[in-house]
Design a binder for these strands. Structure first.
Length: 538
RNA sequence: GGCGCUAUCGUCUAGUGGUUAGGACACAGGAUUUUCAUUCCUGCAACCGGAGUUCGAUUCUCCGUAGCGCUACCA
């Protein structure tokens, strides 16, 4: 028994993009896997032929990779020279493939046949009308529909147990149902919820193979996760009600097979972990396309850092039980981007465990995400900040002197906000007189003060320039240090002058700042002075 | 309707059979004798209801209530 091997997986269906909730499930999967030193793989569940999209998988993998959550096994963007899927334009890697369910049809048919041979599966011939009729009866009698009995009476045993091959060719387009053995109740286990008793007396025989030959989730799940040796299934809580059915299918299907695992749910049945939902900002529904804001790529494109998104998402339904929230510090930002994300994941994984998971749904809170983003943008180097922002805003022009962007970096929430503050350097707009007025004094006084302090600043230009030149000799590539020194210099000079003359700071600094920036809300006057050439100031 | 899950500040959550029920975001106020911001400080704010067990329940049990999920040839 390989019970020591920790192996889990994520199996999204290709709906077109990476859903925020899926991203969190993948993140939790990765974290739990790291914590247990296991391996997880990515499988594509594309058994619903009604909603196939060619670019869906690439979109999914791209967004996942952007978060540092690319799978090491399964479907991949990397050219592995193996398992290329033309429809999705992706490759596969690993020993348990194929990892795309539409490529595994033969397997599903093989095991569907096994069920038929065991008399645990049978072809069902109800028409839509008949099914509706049966449901009406169910509402009245309040007992489960007996599909088995219905089909025995309608078509007889011979047709019900015809082979998979024959069944799929049958003109009546039957579906294959699993014949549920019904004990009164079955006890199943979830790693978070613990023991759950489920009453099976109202469960019905369920479809495992559709008439188009594709398996339903249940069959695909049970076949794949045994064959791929999944030891833990992590999925959303909406699956909880069908856990009993899946456990029973597992038990029946693999009863006589090599034991690859044994859990509280039985022989060859994996462990399960059902994660709570993520709620939208308003209302009590889980996040859906209708609320907007569910496409992970949109977040990345808007300028949320993957570092911030991952860190925030980790806290949606999990908490280490300590005060620690930022799992990356300033020093970590000296690492290259990819390594930094690895480090973040590793750091989180150390504290991450199933018993610290929350059972109740978590509501997304964008203000808190913003906070994480600001924190991490501040930790970014100026170069990386500009580089990453520019990738998101290709038409944003970068000046040869990068320093103005330091004004943005310290003040923006999103990467794409770049330009918000540096704008006052590049696109200076003369302020209105009324804006120059400081709230504690009159307009005239404000203008006079501005005149006075302007003259003083201009008189000091040479002194600061000399100072700058001395710095030039000493300062190395890091221009930021120089910038900070000059800001400090201006601050010293001006504040000295203010106190010598016994002037109130606000009376002079407000007009000066507004004049320099052209804006009511802006960086400090000293930062702007440090960035401008002497000529510009004059 | 049936079945299942859940329930602590506005939000994410910590926590305990006896605590001033803790932190973070948000919000409000103050300080940094320069605005917005940053930083720092302070404040505001919560155990769904009822019964039982107990000397004592937010914590344990039961019953409600509410929310959510499932009840497909979707996953």
């Amino acid at each position: 028994m390989n019970s020591k091997i920790f192996r889990t997986r994520q199996a999204p269906s290709p709906t077109g993009y990476l859903h925020l909730g899926t991203a969190r499930t993948v993140l939790f999967t990765d974290l739990i896997t790291r914590h247990n030193q296991g391996q997880w793989f990515l499988r594509i569940e594309d058994t619903d032929q009604k909603r196939l999209q060619g670019d869906a998988v690439v979109n999914l993998l791209t967004a996942l990779e952007g978060l540092g959550l690319a799978a090491k096994e399964g479907v991949t963007l990397q050219d592995t020279q193996k398992g290329f899927n033309e429809f999705y334009n992706v490759y596969q890697q690993g020993d348990f493939g194929p990892y795309i369910q539409s490529e595994r049809l033969e397997l599903y048919h093989k095991y569907a046949q096994k069920l038929i041979d065991m008399r645990a599966g049978y072809w069902a011939f109800e028409t839509i009308e008949e099914k509706e009729e049966l449901k009406k009866i169910k509402d009245v009698t309040k007992s489960a529909i007996d599909y088995y009995k219905f089909n025995i009476e309608k078509v007889g045993e011979e047709k019900m147990y015809q082979s998979v091959e024959q069944g799929l060719k049958d003109d009546n387009r039957p579906t294959l149902r699993f014949r549920l053995q019904r004990p009164e109740t079955i006890q199943v286990f979830d790693e978070l919820l613990g023991k759950v008793k489920i009453d099976l007396s109202l469960e019905e025989d369920f479809t495992i193979l559709k008439s188009d030959g594709f398996p339903t989730y249940a069959l695909a799940h049970v076949v794949d996760d045994y064959l791929m040796q999944t030891s833990l299934v992590i999925r959303a809580q909406e699956w909880m009600p069908s856990l009993a059915r899946h456990v029973m299918l597992f038990q029946t299907m693999w009863e006589d097979c090599e034991i690859v695992m044994e859990t509280k749910n039985g022989k060859n049945v994996p462990e399960y972990l059902h994660l709570s939902f993520i709620l939208g900002e308003t209302g009590n529904k889980k996040m859906s396309k209708r609320d907007g804001n569910v496409n992970m790529q949109d977040y990345l494109d808007k300028g949320y850092l993957p570092e911030a998104v991952v860190n925030y998402l980790a806290f949606l339904g999990w908490n280490p039980g300590t005060d620690k929230e930022l799992y990356l510090n300033k020093e970590d930002f000296e690492l290259p981007f990819a390594q930094r994300l690895e480090k973040l994941l590793d750091n989180l994984a150390v504290d991450f465990s199933i018993d610290k998971l929350s059972k109740s749904p978590a509501r997304i809170n964008f203000k808190k995400l913003d906070w994480f983003n600001r924190e991490y943008i501040k930790m970014l180097s100026l170069e990386e900040f500009i580089d990453r922002a520019q990738k998101l805003k290709p038409d944003f022009e970068i000046d040869s002197n990068n320093l103005p962007y330091i004004l943005d970096k310290n003040r923006v929430t999103l990467l794409t906000d770049i330009g918000l503050e540096s704008d006052c350097i590049f696109n200076y707009q003369k302020p209105l007189n009324e804006d120059v007025k400081w709230k504690k004094i009159s307009l005239q006084e404000s203008l006079d003060n501005l005149q006075q302090i302007s003259e003083f600043v201009i008189s000091k230009l040479d002194e600061v320039e000399n100072y700058t030149n001395t710095l030039n000799k000493e300062t190395k590539p890091l221009q930021i240090d120089k910038f900070i020194d000059i800001v400090k210099k201006w601050e010293d000079i001006v504040k000295n002058w203010l106190s010598q003359n016994d002037y109130q700071a606000g009376n002079f600094l407000w007009p000066l700042r507004v004049k320099l920036s052209g804006k009511v809300k802006s960086p400090s006057p000293f930062e702007i002075l440090a960035l401008l050439d002497s000529d510009q100031i004059r």
